[in-house]
Nucleic acid binder design. Structure first.
Length: 637
RNA sequence: GGCGGGUUAGCUCAGUUGGUUAGAGCGUCGGAAUCAUAAUCCGCAGGUCCACGGUUCAAGUCCGUGACCCGCCA
């Protein structure tokens, strides 16, 4: 491998999973690093993809009554579309169902088997029929299934094992002598801790009777290859191992395997020993990043607090999302994702500092320099100070890329941007224009514009399309600007004389009023428990769901809406005092909750056959509704 | 229970091999300015650097003990 070639991978994601912020973060981080290294002029290869075999896919496909292949073909699109949306520039998307990958896995299995690295053994385990899962003695909790607590049955099964244990000493030594191999270093410690206990052999098969959806073992057609042995090989099959040796020579060993900390052991123990057995060199660095947390809880599907990346993008744009993820997490540590935090950082860094600086420069150039960036006059200490901050940012960003500290690099860039705003305050070009000090004015406008150009190049890997817009604002053709590299920043600039374009706000501020309204203070009224109702009393009130068919304002009453609603088979009329909070149009089609056995009453001469439920605090009112689709007339309680 | 890491301004965190008044960003407050997305700039806010003990001329920075938190493993 050429030292200057950069090959980076993400894990291959389980195709049956729904993409979430964890997938998005790893992939964006890999993308930014890939773009950075391209920007440094290094040949770069970026691989991502999907892991498509296994029980869950088999089950999901069966449930849909389609083949696993068809299921994968459909679900893989979710990842591919998201990556397109996020501007991911992977050079290849590998799927473990690719014929090429399957052939390579099969060949490797055959070779290792022939060389005695893989053997067959019988072992006893426990099977939970309900979960359809196999457990070892150690997994069990008090003799029961650790997942569901039900009884398990003992079964004897034969499987194939990879002789992983024999490489224990070698791997310990390798990790100890290669501090860059596992990053951050405390993850290397964890791996060593794991290795200090005994290291067993790795079960790499499943009998087809239990799992049919997988790569068949070439030496025993009754078995398929199990999970990791199949999946990990993507890192080499994706760059031509056993299919295009020249390509493989070019890229292997990988510069980085980016992973989440949950799959540390598989990557720092299974994978290196597999490579050792194959006689291949190990990747230079396996980097495990942390989790995104909401509050202090791990993001996970089962906890239902997953932030949908797509939803965030709609709100703020892809580039800002990418910037936030990179600026906020110091790689390796966990980080919290909160909307408040996101808005604060967006407004502060992108809107107030960077976007505003660009706007100031463009506006003044239009007003005081006929819309073209002027050639500079003489420089003074003020220019020097600002330029130093920009140079510092270039230096910091460059070393941040190789040191995997992009958050720090971005901080240095923002520091330069702030220096830019400071520079304008000090030199006050608006005052220079009034006084007619053209030479100094030209110097200031030029210096600021040129600094922005450099900043844009530094931020391009993180925010490619926004920085393209910035380039356009400074009068560059899109393609020419996108082609600018970090390594070009030492060359003389060609910015003087360019016609600027007023974009009218590169990063519009996100106003927080909406966010505040959606998170009102808790009601202060205390609940009176001194006089409780019995359950029978409570159920004298019949609550039912109802669907709003029509809605109109009541003449002469600005607070009232007249609704016709469907309650099961019957249609009723209802008058509700919600007109200040809901328009008639907003009501139609909604499912609401009503008191169905309320004594009818006349309101403004109109009979109301029931009452709808709503929550009220202060000057806010929200309808009580149900969590999803349900027929009208359903009882609530 | 074993191993490892953490506890620094209201919040999020930096603090190299121990050494002058412990830093940044955000937030709060006061002021300036008006080219700009009510954005910007300046200033202030006095944090027992978890606690106790120790080493040292000198400790947030090394050692010990304890408390709390976290990670990996069992």
């Amino acid at each position: 491998m050429n030292e200057r070639n950069f090959y980076i991978t993400t894990p291959i994601y389980y195709v049956n999973d729904k993409p979430h912020i964890g997938h998005a973060y790893t992939t964006i981080l890999a993308d930014v690093l890939a773009r950075c290294h391209r920007s440094l002029g290094e040949p770069t290869f970026f691989l991502t993809g999907t892991d498509e075999h296994g029980q869950k896919v088999q089950k999901a496909a069966a449930a849909r009554n389609i083949t696993p292949e068809a299921h994968c073909d459909e679900t893989v699109i979710r990842f591919q579309e998201l990556w397109r949306e996020l501007g991911i520039t992977n050079d290849k998307f590998i799927r473990t169902t690719d014929p090429e990958h399957k052939r390579v896995v099969s060949e490797i299995l055959r070779e290792l088997y022939d060389r005695g690295e893989i053997y067959k053994a019988e072992y006893t385990g426990w099977y939970c029929v309900g979960d359809e899962r196999f457990f070892t003695e150690k997994d069990l909790k008090e003799g029961k299934c650790p997942e569901c607590g039900r009884d398990v049955s003992e079964i004897v099964e034969s499987n194939y094992f990879f002789k992983m244990g024999q490489y224990r000493e070698w791997l310990i030594d390798y990790i100890e002598t290669h501090p860059e191999f596992i990053q951050p270093s405390f993850r290397a410690n964890e791996t060593l801790g794991f290795l200090r206990k005994d290291l067993g052999d790795l079960c790499i098969s499943r009998p087809k009777t239990r799992l049919a959806w997988g790569i068949e073992l070439p030496f025993d057609r009754d078995y398929v290859c199990y999970v990791w042995f199949d999946a990990l090989i993507n890192y080499i099959s994706g760059v031509g191992y056993r299919s295009d040796e020249k390509l493989f020579e070019k890229w292997w060993p990988a510069s980085y395997h980016l992973i989440g900390k949950d799959i540390l052991t598989t990557h720092t123990v299974y994978w290196p020993t597999m490579l050792k057995a194959m006689g291949l060199p190990l990747p230079r660095t396996i980097f495990a990043h942390g989790w995104w947390l909401t509050g202090s809880t791990k993001m996970s599907k089962s906890l239902g607090n997953v932030i949908n990346p797509m939803a965030m993008i709609e709100r703020c744009g892809v580039d800002a999302f990418r910037y936030y993820l990179l600026a906020e997490m110091s790689p390796g540590q966990d980080a919290s994702f909160t909307e408040e935090n996101f808005v604060a950082r967006y407004n502060s860094d992108l809107a107030n500092d960077l976007g505003n600086l660009l706007n100031r420069v463009v506006n003044m150039t239009c007003r005081s320099a006929a819309g073209a960036i002027p050639a500079p006059g003489e420089s003074t200490g003020e220019e020097q100070e600002f330029n130093d901050a920009v140079s510092g940012a270039i230096e910091a960003m460059t070393s941040a890329i190789t040191g995997m500290k992009l958050d720090q690099g971005l901080a240095a860039v923002m520091n330069a941007v702030r220096a830019g705003n400071r520079y304008l305050e000090k030199t006050a070009p608006w005052a220079l224009a009034k006084k007619g000090e053209t030479a100094k004015l030209n110097t200031v406008l030029f210096t600021a514009a040129e600094a922005l150009r450099k900043v844009a190049v530094l931020l391009m890997p993180v925010m490619p399309s926004k920085m393209a817009e910035l380039g356009h604002a400074l009068g560059y053709e899109a393609e020419a600007f996108a082609a600018l590299k970090l390594s070009d920043l030492t060359r003389p600039t060609d910015i003087a004389g360019r016609k600027v374009n007023n974009l009218g706000g590169l990063f519009p501020r996100i106003e927080v009023e909406a966010a505040q309204a959606s998170a009102p203070k808790a009601a202060e009224e205390a609940v009176n428990v001194a006089d409780p109702v019995t359950i029978d009393e409570f159920f004298r009130t019949q609550l039912k769901t109802a669907k709003v068919l029509t809605a109109e304002r009541v003449q002469g009453a600005d607070k009232l809406l007249k609704l016709s609603i469907e309650v099961g088979a019957e249609t009723r009329q209802l008058v509700a005092g919600i007109a200040l909070y809901y328009t008639p149009e907003a009501m139609v089609g909604r499912t609401i909750v009503i008191v169905a056995n309320l004594k009818p009453a006349k309101i403004r001469g109109i009979e109301s056959q029931g009452m709808l439920l709503a929550a009220k605090v202060g000057d806010q009112l929200k309808l009580v509704t149900v969590d999803g689709e349900i027929a009208s007339g359903a009882s609530v309680g």
